[in-house]
Design a protein around this nucleic acid. Structure first.
Length: 760
DNA sequence: GAGCACTGC
């Protein structure tokens, strides 16, 4: 039934390098009441003791253990709970515990160190605690920070560590993520997202409140992590008292060491099971089909154990789920196989459906019968963000959707591309979390060796850097060209970013931050949206623009289910909100309706379902709006509500949009179909989701998407006179080559000149 | 007349 077999067995044994040691359930850590401290503190050593500041950065592992195993919590002075000692036993069994002394020795001898640790080593939870006992931040009024790339990780690790230290979450141990600051003036260990620490660095370049900064999951190379690394490298010269620890999965430890001036390395073993790797003999033309057949074959021939399949996107996953389910039923009927339950898993799936992957595998039809099995068909989300125990078989076709940036046409797009060796190893590791497993790679061993790159490209090489450059400027980095990136981005990408910021007047011609740029950097938005927001009071509609910007900052609010009838119904529902001038105004209508009395009477959640709208997106637009509004207030950006009765209500909003989006304009082609972008002369079609008819000559667009065709998406019609008026330098005729756009613009300039003459 | 891998502020 399958020509992907016989699979060649490789001798390679693989050990997982999985990431989060802490599962979500720890987030619900039970908080115990602390009994009041009654006894005096004289019973030192065999009964614990107190911190001794003189020993700071000179303590031994025994010192920390003595303090941590006494009667009283040395951080709070209160008696430890019995639960504390139960957890302490478990912690002592973690591999990293053996290396506490080794860690302290290295920590004392160097300012910057690199720590690599595999899954289950306990590095994210234990290491920061080792630091606390030696660094004693509470005695010198400082804090220890530990960054995570994801919010859930920051929250759940913090909850776990608070439990381990027998303190209340938010007091000695807390976390800080966007929209939620769970810390207090007692906090000495703070888990936070990497983006959050970057924000703090923009306010305080010295990061002076910290005595030690731990960057966790550094191998993921998020934009924020990369910038922080460059920053910390610089800062380590100015602040000799600041300790820095870079934590990573094993693969690229040397690169981190080299980057940080040959920083010493500590490696801690993980706790995972070996995974056998199988390759196909031949190249698989149709990886989707091969993946489905491999799953069915595993089900028919392999021992008990769940299957995890990696595919690239929602549509592909839903197709695979349907096919596997159908053919699985056939296997049950014809071959007497056990039951098969198939679950999709991807980011845009609502949380309760994501949770279903944790349901237990189906039972065999009869006792002692062939095993039932659970199959999870997932995007990359199961590679890093979510861990599923019980997976024994991994099917890896070797592809994922990755963001790529083309600086020439200034477009970010998603492309199905081969994964890296590191990713392949990470995927394989997912099979060895509970017992030895198998990984079926749907490509040849030769392809793995020769064609896959070692590491995925870091985000900084795949993104538009306008926002990053603005952040760096705000961080006080004047010389961007010589900023020490671990992987420097292409010069053209930097040039594009500087050019864009210059057009937005966020930086002047000398590359210096302008006052507008400084203000724009306050907002957690793309510079263009920030400038749009800051400019909106001039058009007497900043409340409305604030709403539109918030709606543009969350996942799409429109739901369009599959199935012909449902699609039609969803399209009809959308028409109720449609504004003839475009999608931005349509978003405004949706938001207003969401907050209307009518929606509240029905119940917002129900109202959303009735109107094919995404409740979660709208709620998050609300919280984004609240945050941005606060920032506008504190930075004196006027909040002005447009006059809905006025005839110019919508025109004012469109003017404000034109003022912000003047770089993202397309013009209807005078001959032929479709539109052409004004700056880069790219052919583009209006995305079919637009509410606009195809007749408006000039439009601004929110994004340019490359899929089956070139599309511009989220579009509003504007008058060209506005563009010329608001961005005269950008629309100077000399900037345009001969052609359609220039000819039209010339006529616009003439009209404007005539009008001026007539009125004077 | 079509889709949004995953994060983060």
């Amino acid at each position: 039934m399958s020509d992907t077999r016989p699979l060649k067995k490789s001798k390679t044994k693989h050990t997982s390098t999985s990431i989060s040691e802490i599962e979500a359930e720890h987030a619900e850590a039970e908080m115990l009441a602390h009994p009041p401290a009654a006894e005096d503190r004289s019973l030192h050593f065999h009964d614990g003791g107190e911190f001794n500041l003189e020993k700071r950065h000179e303590t031994s592992a025994a010192y920390g253990e003595r303090l941590g195993s006494g009667k009283k919590n040395p951080f709070t002075g209160e008696n430890f709970s019995t639960k504390y000692f139960d957890i302490l036993k478990v912690r002592h069994d973690l591999p990293i515990h053996q290396q506490r002394a080794e860690f302290l020795e290295m920590f004392h001898s160097t300012q910057i160190m690199v720590l690599v640790g595999e899954t289950g080593s306990g590095k994210s939870t234990q290491l920061p605690q080792f630091v606390l006992y030696d660094d004693m931040p509470h005695l010198i009024g400082k804090q220890v920070a530990c960054t995570q790339p994801r919010r859930v990780a920051a929250m759940s690790v913090a909850a776990r560590v608070a439990e381990e230290l027998d303190v209340k979450l938010g007091e000695e141990v807390g976390y800080n993520i966007r929209f939620e600051n769970m810390t207090s003036n007692k906090t000495i260990l703070k888990y936070m997202t990497d983006g959050m620490l970057l924000r703090e660095a923009m306010e305080d370049h010295e990061l002076s409140r910290y005595s030690c900064i731990i960057l966790d999951e550094a191998h993921e190379r998020t934009l924020a992590t990369d910038i922080l690394m460059g920053l910390l490298k610089q800062l380590s010269d100015r602040r000799k008292d600041l300790k820095i620890i870079i934590m990573s999965a094993t693969l690229d430890a040397e690169k981190f060491q080299r980057y940080f001036n040959d920083a010493p390395l500590l490696a801690v073993p993980g706790r995972t099971y070996p995974v056998e790797i199988y390759y196909t003999k031949e190249f698989q033309r149709d990886y989707l089909d091969a993946a489905i057949r491999t799953v069915l074959q595993i089900h028919a021939t392999e021992d008990e154990g769940d299957i995890l399949v990696f595919l690239t996107g929602e549509e592909e996953i839903e197709t695979a789920v349907k096919k596997i389910t159908l053919e699985g039923e056939q296997l049950v009927r014809e071959e007497g196989c056990g039951p098969l339950k198939v679950y999709p898993l991807y980011g845009s799936l609502p949380p309760h459906q994501q949770q279903r992957i944790f349901e237990p595998a189906p039972q065999a039809f009869k006792k002692g019968g062939r095993p039932g099995r659970k199959v999870i068909v997932s995007t990359n989300i199961a590679e890093t963000s979510l861990t599923i125990d019980g997976v024994v078989y991994v099917v890896d076709p070797g592809f994922s959707k990755q963001k790529v940036y083309n600086p020439r046409i200034r477009v970010e797009s998603l492309l199905v591309s081969p994964i890296s060796k590191a990713s392949a190893q990470q995927r394989a590791g997912r099979a060895g979390r509970t017992r030895p497993g198998k990984c079926f790679r749907l490509y040849t061993e030769e392809a793995f060796q020769k064609e896959l790159i070692e590491q995925s490209y870091p985000e900084v090489l795949r993104s538009n850097l306008a926002n990053t450059v603005l952040e760096l400027k705000k961080l006080g980095i004047d010389d961007l060209v010589h900023f020490d990136f671990m992987d420097p981005p292409a010069p053209e990408t930097m040039m594009r970013a500087l050019e864009e910021l210059n057009y937005l007047t966020c930086i002047d011609d000398e590359g210096g931050l302008t006052s507008l740029g400084r203000l724009a950097s306050v907002f957690p938005l793309d510079p263009m949206l920030a400038v749009l927001l800051i400019g909106s009071p001039a058009f007497k509609c900043s409340e409305e623009i604030l709403t539109i910007v918030s709606m543009l900052s969350v996942p799409t609010v429109f739901i369009r289910p599959s199935g012909e009838g449902a699609k039609r119904a969803a399209d009809e529902a959308k028409k109720l909100f449609a504004h003839p001038d475009g999608d931005h105004l349509t978003l405004l209508n949706v938001y207003h309706s969401f907050e209307s009395d009518e929606a509240h009477e029905v119940g917002q959640r129900k109202w959303c379902i009735q109107n094919f709208l995404n409740y979660r997106s709208l709620k998050s637009a609300q919280s984004v709006r609240k945050q941005l509004r606060r920032m506008m207030e504190s930075h004196d950006v006027d909040l002005i509500e447009g006059n809905y009765e006025s005839l110019s209500y919508y025109d004012n909003i469109r003017k404000a949009l034109a003022n912000g989006f003047f770089m993202q304009v397309a013009k209807k082609k005078s001959t032929g179909k479709g539109y052409i972008t004004v700056k880069d002369s790219q052919d583009a079609l209006l995305h079919p989701s637009t509410v606009l008819a195809q007749q408006d000559e000039w439009v601004i667009y929110n994004e340019f998407v490359l899929t089956s065709k070139n599309y511009i998406r989220t579009i509003t019609s504007v008058r060209p006179e506005w563009l010329v008026e608001f961005a005269p330098e950008y629309y100077d005729l000399e900037n345009f080559q001969q052609g359609d756009v220039r000819m039209s613009l010339a006529r616009v300039h003439e009209r404007v000149a005539k009008m001026k003459k007539a009125s004077s």
